[in-house]
Amino acid sequence: AFSSEQLARLKREFNENRYLTERRRQQLSSELGLNEAQIKIWFQNKRA
Rank of each mutant, 00 (worst) to 15 (best):
E36P: 11
S30M: 14
L28N: 00
E13M: 05
E36I: 08
F14G: 02
A1K: 12
Q6R: 03
A1Q: 12
Q6C: 05
R12T: 09
N45V: 09
F2D: 01
L20E: 04
L28F: 02
F2L: 12
R25V: 15
F14P: 01
K40W: 13
F43Y: 05
K40A: 15
N35G: 10
S29Q: 05
E31Q: 06
A37L: 14
L34Q: 01
S3K: 04
S30P: 01
L32W: 03
E36R: 03
F43M: 03
A8F: 05
A1V: 12
Q38C: 11
E31C: 06
E5C: 09
E16Y: 08
I41M: 13
F43K: 00
K46G: 06
F2M: 09
L32H: 01
Y19Q: 07
Q44G: 06
S30K: 14
W42H: 01
Q38S: 08
F2H: 03
N45A: 10
N15V: 08
A48Y: 08
T21C: 07
Q26A: 11
R24G: 05
K46D: 03
W42T: 00
Y19H: 13
Q44N: 08
E5S: 09
N15M: 12
F2A: 02
N17D: 07
R25A: 15
I41F: 10
N17Q: 05
Q38Y: 08
N35S: 15
I39G: 00
A37E: 15
E13K: 02
K46E: 15
A37V: 12
Y19G: 04
Q27R: 10
R47E: 08
R25S: 15
R47V: 10
T21E: 04
S30W: 12
S29P: 01
K11R: 14
E36N: 04
E31H: 03
F14N: 01
L10V: 01
Q44V: 07
I39Q: 01
S4Q: 13
N45T: 10
E36H: 05
F14T: 01
F43C: 03
K11Y: 14
N15I: 09
R23Q: 14
R18F: 05
N35M: 09
I39P: 00
R47I: 13
R25K: 10
E36L: 05
